[in-house]
Design a protein around this nucleic acid. Structure first.
Lengths: 151, 151
DNA sequence: CTCATCTCAGCAAGACTGAGATGT
DNA sequence: CACATCTCAGTCTTGCTGAGATGA
């Protein structure tokens, strides 16, 4: 019989790449939980956020802005439309496109999701004070930007 | 036609949970690339590291120490054994178990993987100086530990 | 003709579940 | 008997690719 909690190798515990993955896992768990309280998922929030910030858009543009694959946008928009949070209508200027628009209910839902998400971030960073949170965000942003850059 | 690079919503860019995910993605890409140079994967490194630090172990113990699922250990150990990096032999004290042992070649391979991985971490954190790297690691460790704790 | 858009069908990898065979 | 171990088969989810239909 082995000890209940086996120790994790130091080589692994110290690896930044692994640390970041663990934190990402916790983050995803907390965020999924929070958004799940509203019956929605991460990509729903991404879509609503993109629509709220940049206004009505084609599904292709939404895909580029949120990083959601072209193939998956269809179903996600369907789900939002079924709940009355967005409307899909043909673009009169370019009949290949659907223009997606947030409804009033969608706007209210987004505010609610913002509150839920903000709570999840607080939980995630609960062990850090305000200055430390800002520092972590700043460092992560620099690392992320460095690799997102047009190489 | 849309602009080539669509802007990402500020709500998303600012979210710590999202930042951490982006960084984790870059980390995984770099690490996979580095280990791929030796023809191995992340879980192979985890296994070799666990064996090197805690000595020969059963497959079940390896699973607990590395977080690899019991079902996936079998194949991973097979792959390492085929390459002659570990040996699988029946445990004389408990005949349900296989005892997995690192070979000399496995030890050398681990050192090589350590070098490759260390290079990947450097690439990942290239935009930070040494003090900043330590700070990031310390903050991430605190966040990770806070959520890993036996709640 | 070319390219973009929307849509669907299907693949591949990863994380997991269930269950059987063996042994403690 | 309950439980641990090793193994295989199969499921589910996610991110992606390919291709067809429509239209600019």
């Amino acid at each position: 019989m082995e000890r209940a909690q086996d120790r994790i190798p130091q080589r692994l515990r110290a690896l930044p790449s692994r640390l970041v993955n663990q934190v990402a896992l916790s983050a995803n768990r907390l965020v999924d939980q929070a958004l799940g309280a509203a019956g929605l998922r991460r990509y729903h929030y991404s879509l609503l956020a993109a629509l709220a910030e940049f206004g009505p858009a084609s599904q292709a543009a939404l895909g580029r802005r949120t990083g959601i694959d072209r193939s998956d946008i269809v179903a996600a928009v369907n789900e939002l439309a079924e709940r009355g949070l967005v409307e899909r209508s043909p673009d009169p200027d370019d009949r290949r496109r659907n223009v997606i628009t947030v409804t009033a209910a969608g706007g209210r839902q987004l505010e609610e999701l913002d509150r839920l998400l903000s709570g999840a971030q607080d939980e995630l960073l609960a062990s850090l004070n305000v200055a430390e949170r800002e520092q972590l965000i700043s460092l992560l942003t620099r690392v992320a930007d460095h690799h997102a850059a047009p190489h």
